[in-house]
Nucleic acid binder design. Sequence first.
DNA 1: TGGAATGTTGGAAC
DNA 2: CGTTCCAACATTCC
Length: 271
Amino acid sequence: MPEGPSIVILRDETARFAGRTIAQAEGNSKTVDFSALAGQPVVALRSWGKHFLIQLPTLALRIHLLMFGSYRINERKDAEPRLRLRFDDGDELNFYTCSVKPLPPDLDAQYDWRVDLMSDQWDPKLALKKLRAKPDMLVCDATLDQEIFSGAGNIFKNEVLFRIRVHPLSTVGALSAAKQRELVEQMRVYAFDFLRWKKAYVLKPHWLAHTKRICPRCEIPFLKAHLGKTHRRSFYCERCQKLYTSGAATTPITPARSGSKPRSRKTPPAS
DNA sequence: TGGAATGTTGGAAC
DNA sequence: CGTTCCAACATTCC
């Protein structure tokens, strides 16, 4: 479900609930005082990257769908909702398996909208400045950094790096100024491609790199590895995507961390 | 069919 | 003390 464009779709689908009063709230969230929500009008429904924000007079609710979260509007899944907001005429919003966190109501004081790839206030110059401040950062990590590219996810990373023909293990500082600019520009362009394709239910057919086995450009096999600090999977073409490194300043990559030897994700048996 | 995945957090480990 | 590691959360698909 969740990269920035999907949250914009959620925001658009729920826009008509703005101004309406919550009749009742319930759910299995452990962080929300449901009784405090009833009677409050929805001041605004907003988003910042992957955060869906429900602004009320006395507080805001931050909903993050994480990897498996989902929602239903005037429908119910066969599962306990984390949060359900019921309105007077029977309309309701249901959120499942997500993180719900109460925030103070003044969202403008807490969020820098210039960082959100989907925002009208998106500021490419600011992103460039943040990139330049971290020259040793790998581009596969930079493209996932929510403080630089809020809303970008792993699909963004793979698609954009393929588009601009940059190897995921390149360091930010080794890219030319023009290439850094291209990275920032294409993150924004891809965000709206993603949104358009997702709305039309044709996102996946437009993937050129993510989950792909063959490079669509030169037709040799893609490499697949879990790279960077996040160890998220990268799909890339060694021939088409250039590796930019700045030699001495580059942090050496430990072989065991390079992705060829995935670490166990299973919980070891308790003893 | 078990493993992995469009993700983040908090606390342990180093 | 700062950085890194990793378990936990929980659903859906292949």
